[in-house]
Nucleic acid binder design. Structure first.
Lengths: 216, 216
DNA sequence: AAACCCCCTGAAGCGACGCTGAGAAAGCTG
DNA sequence: CAGCTTTCTCAGCGTCGCTTCAGGGGGTTT
């Protein structure tokens, strides 16, 4: 216990030296309250805690919908049930005693992994996630086909700029494509029906004789 | 030097006779490379190594997040401090000269102690333990074949991201694989039958023309 | 105002894509 | 060596998306 407090203090000093900001909770209940109030980048949780044990805290947090990555510190003599640990929703485990370097590496890995949401392309409240190949307006997700997505992406990547059909065909279609440029008209039509009309807006403007423009 | 090489060879023969598989590195850098690429059950590290010494190797591995238990072999004459060895992240140390039986016992103890749940990959209530090569949903464990596990792991490592069949084949299969990408379809089908259908969910989404996506 | 041009959009064919069951080949275990 | 598991291929089938076409609407020019 006194030992634990010393370890905790050492860990805090180490992390703060790395540039992290650290909040330390003396017991489970305090930790739970802190975690509920703040949006931490990661939570380190000791199983052996005064008051409320680590499992309970973890379970309570997950039940609250807190998705912050949790690193659980388990005792050396694995007295606990493994399945229980998996169920409560921790993201990683570390068995005591551990080296500080390992601890740091695991914590970093955890934080890195939780920052997955890739860069979004935006135009107003319209968003496009190239990595996940998703798209939507506001909180509503919109299902697009491959070609539709490619055309919309092309437009959103150049907001406020007029793109000729020729240019869009060149960027979206294969070089071997020998069809008409009018294919773009068809896709713009379909896009408007999916991303504009249902929301009562008009984000893709036709510039007669020149092409199309994404309003930013 | 020559002595060391002979000791190493003898240790190798002994361990192989016990049924272990052994990789031997002639110098620190080679060892580091091997340890980074493979998931060994344990690493035996001599402090006196050509090129990169044992402390450096150990430190580098731990900084990379490699948690494989490390047994450090130190020289008798206290030029190096034992405590220093433990500081860099070794799990146990042995002072030369030592008896083979002691060595074996310590190694076994290390391996036994290290079999705790490692870092978990998660996607919703689906979990994957790469170290233990186990997987499950919630508290239910799911049995997967090697390939199934590798494909699922590949997907779970990039949650919310669309992975093309090409990319999955590249990550999971051998470079020498010259089959069709459609093999991925077969494995996704089998995975869905094991990890999705029995639980009434659909976590692996098909993105037609693009690939597959693990819903996060 | 008429003619012209550009664009919109619904319909439909067809080719491509993905899913799945069956089974052969290779590997492992007892 | 026999029986089991695992891996991979193949083919059939259903579905979906890409593209074309044609008719209509609405600016623009003469």
């Amino acid at each position: 216990m006194e030992d634990d407090a010393q370890v905790a203090a050492a860990v805090r000093r180490g992390l703060e030296a790395e540039g992290y900001t650290v909040d330390l909770a003396p017991d489970g209940l305090t930790g739970l309250r802190l975690a509920r109030r703040h949006a931490y980048r990661a939570i380190v949780l000791d199983i052996m805690l005064p008051g409320l044990n680590g499992y309970k805290v973890c379970e309570a947090l997950r039940a609250d919908g807190v998705t912050t990555p949790i690193l659980m510190l388990t005792a050396k003599d694995g007295e606990y049930d493994e399945a229980e640990g998996l169920d409560t929703g921790a993201d990683d485990y570390l068995t005591k005693p551990f080296s500080y370097l390992v601890f740091l590496a695991r914590l970093r890995a955890l934080i890195r992994r939780s920052q997955t949401p890739g860069p979004l392309l935006r135009a107003g409240d319209l968003w496009l996630d190239p990595a996940g190949r998703r798209c939507g307006r506001g909180s509503a997700e919109i299902t697009l086909t491959e070609r539709e997505f490619a055309v919309l992406r092309c437009l959103v990547e150049h907001p406020g700029e007029v793109l000729s059909k020729r240019r869009i065909v060149d960027e979206v279609w294969d070089i071997a494509f020998d069809g008409e440029e009018s294919i773009v008209e068809v896709y713009v039509s379909m896009l408007r029906r999916k991303v504009d009309t249902p929301f009562g807006v008009r984000s893709i403007t036709t510039v007669r004789g020149a092409g199309y423009r994404m309003e930013s």
